[in-house]
Amino acid sequence: MTDCAFQLRHVSKRFTKAKETITIFEGLDLDIPAEDYVAIMGPSGSGKTTLLNVLGGIDQVTDGEVLFNGQRVDTLSESQLARWRANNIGFIFQFYNLMPVLTAAQNVELPLLLTSFNTAERRRRVEIALSLVNLSERSGHYPRELSGGQQQRVAIARAIVSDPQVLLCDEPTGDLDRSSADEVLKILKLLNEEHGKTIIVVTHDPEAAAHAKRILHLNKGVFVDRTVLT
């Protein structure tokens, strides 16, 4: 067993566009311990989101190994990766990515449809997740009836409802005003500190990054600085 949630070993990511090979990162090494809260910063095109996608198993590495809890995940098939994500990863996106035709509660319930929980158990877990983000009273509302901050809190509830070990957040405050952003960041901190979630946030926002335990600065596919905040 290992304490590391994620380990990247000499990971490279390249792709070909118009006969030209573009390297996103080359020989990257990274350890993210369980219950860590990491912010990844860097200029646009530095490879932050690609790194997050690789960690989330929705993008493949060209070379190297990606390990989760000591097990390689870069060799899993599409369907194995889908199951792995359902069991271990919660995603939070910049634009919330809620389903517009579903209510807040129905959006939150989506990951539970991948489990064997019965209806009553799913309902109970949805209620808990929504209460954790202080949105119990909005469970019957559709995304269009919620503010940006509320929608992002619904997205957080959706990410945590199946109790995954890791939350991957891509610019979670990028589309929010300061007060809504602070509210979201407070919830993420709570989830890390009190619920032991490993949180990896990609952000441009220094204030959002300041809530993390450490900040990794990525530039041209290389970690140029590693700041430990706590």
Binding site: I58, S79, R85, F91, N97, M99, R158
Partner: peptide, 14 residues
């Protein structure tokens, strides 16, 4: 497209 990609990321299969 975004909805489908989101569901796939969450873990919904093909």
């Amino acid at each position: 497209g975004t909805e489908i990609a989101t569901l796939r990321a969450i873990g919904f299969g093909g």
